[in-house]
Each structure stands twice: as structure tokens, then as C-alpha cells.
């Protein structure tokens, strides 16, 4: 655990995997878009509008998965106080926020022609909006507190508090009456999406996953380099004053 958390080792591993992750993204995204737009059937009820599902549902999955990543990294940051966990959490937050925003916008664009409305305040839509605000709050805390160690602590605590929202999002469509339909891909039981429609959904989900990994590594590389630069500058400053 701790050997993986060494920043130098992480950077070496990351730059080793980066080209493969990028290749994975390009392959999955290109084929995913092809199947999603050109080579998948329309739906019996909503026709061509089902194509929005292929960008909306994977974004929702990444929004939640990104938050779980943020929470696990925040947990590691509080318990083991490891700087790499802070870097990982801090760099993952904007990516998760963008996926949540994509989920909200595409969902709204899907809702208007199918449900008949861009937005309703039902339990599912509201809890996803809360997720977006949790991401924004996390990012804001980091920039609002000057002292890095204190900022890390405050932001991590907020991230962990927000975890309650994840099961609420997941089960909102089962616990309460909502406009949003129940889940098609179930934890137990058969998926209620036709196999011809599952392929583009799977490819786009993988593409988003690869994208998350690539952008996370870029951001972490930049963040670690920045920290080192600061440390070096401080050391030089000390030499000069001594």
C-alpha cells in the first residue's frame, strides 16, 4: 500500500501506463461513437432519442465512481496522512464535476423530448444536483484555505460527509416515486436493455473510464511537479538567507 503511495514511484508507473490508457480511450471512444450514432437500433418507444443514453448513463456512472474515488482517497488522507492521497483526491474532483455536469445537461436534453420537461425536482434529479454541488464545494474548500494541510483536512471531511448521497442517488428511484425511470442495469437480475444497445453503452463507459485515468494522471503529474518546485524554491530561499 505505502510503496504504491510513493510519488516518485507513482510518476514512473503512471508514465509507463499512460500511452496504453490513451490508446484504450481512443479505441473505445471511436468505436463507441460509431455504434452509438450509426450502428445501433432505435428504441421501440422513444425512437432515435435512445442515443442520448449512450452519453448520459456512462457520465452518471463516472460521476458516482469519481466521487467514490474522491472519498476513498480522502479517507486515506485522513487516516494515513499520505500526501499522494491528497493529490489524487484533489485532481479527481474537477474530472468528476465535469462528468456530473455532462450527466445533468444530457439528461435535461433527453428529458425534454421524451418526458416533456427539461427538469423536475424529483428525488433522482435533485440528488444528482447535490452531487454536483458537493464536487464544487470540495474544489472551493481547497482554494479557500491557504494552508495546504488544513485545506486537505477540511476538504477530505466534506468529501466523506458527501458519501451518504451516493446510495441516495442509486436507490432514489426505488425508495420513492420519481419521474426518472428505475435502473436498467441491476446489481442482481437481468439487464432490461437489448444486447444491441448494450454494446455502445459498454464501449462509452470504458471510454469515459480511460479518459478519467488519463486526465487524472496528467493533473497529478502537474500537481506533484508543482509541489516539488515549491519545495525546491523554499530550500533555495533558505540557503540564500542562511
Amino acid at each position: 500500500m505505502h510503496s504504491f503511495a510513493n510519488p516518485a514511484r507513482f510518476l514512473r508507473l503512471a508514465s509507463h501506463f499512460l500511452p496504453w490508457l490513451m490508446l484504450g480511450f481512443i479505441l473505445c471512444f471511436a468505436s463507441g461513437l460509431y455504434f452509438a450514432l450509426f450502428h445501433s437500433p432505435p428504441d421501440y418507444l422513444q425512437g432515435e432519442m435512445v442515443r442520448v443514453m449512450y452519453v448520459h448513463v456512462p457520465a452518471a456512472i463516472m460521476a458516482e465512481a469519481g466521487y467514490m474515488f474522491l472519498a476513498v482517497a480522502s479517507f486515506a488522507s485522513i487516516i494515513w496522512k499520505h500526501p499522494l492521497a491528497d493529490v489524487a483526491a484533489r485532481c479527481a474532483a474537477p474530472i468528476g464535476a465535469v462528468f456530473t455536469l455532462i450527466c445533468l445537461i444530457t439528461g435535461s436534453l433527453w428529458g425534454r423530448p421524451t418526458w416533456g420537461t427539461y427538469w423536475v425536482w424529483d428525488a433522482r434529479l435533485t440528488s444528482v444536483l447535490v452531487l454536483f454541488f458537493l464536487y464544487l464545494g470540495y474544489i472551493a474548500l481547497w482554494s479557500a484555505i491557504e494552508d495546504e494541510a488544513r485545506a486537505a483536512k477540511a476538504a477530505s471531511i466534506l468529501a466523506l460527509f458527501g458519501v451518504v448521497n451516493i446510495p441516495i442517488i442509486k436507490f432514489s428511484v426505488e425508495w420513492w416515486h420519481t419521474l426518472h425511470q428505475p435502473a436498467s442495469i441491476k446489481l442482481v437480475g437481468k439487464t432490461t436493455i437489448d444486447p444491441a444497445m448494450q454494446l455502445p453503452l459498454l464501449l462509452m463507459t470504458l471510454a469515459y473510464g480511460f479518459y478519467f485515468a488519463v486526465v487524472l494522471i496528467w493533473r497529478m503529474q502537474a500537481s506533484i511537479a508543482e509541489q516539488r518546485l515549491e519545495a525546491r524554491t523554499r530550500a533555495q530561499l533558505r540557503e540564500v538567507t542562511a
Partner: peptide, 18 residues
């Protein structure tokens, strides 16, 4: 005053439905 459509969790091509 307003009517919204709520769809279920099933997605399938028209041929399968037919």
C-alpha cells in the same frame, strides 16, 4: 394542467417489441 410521460427501464428495437 400539465402531463409528463414517464417511461420504464426497458429498451429494445421495434422488431423485438413486434
Amino acid at each position: 394542467n400539465t402531463v409528463l410521460a414517464k417511461h420504464d427501464e426497458n429498451y429494445m428495437p421495434p422488431e423485438v417489441a413486434a
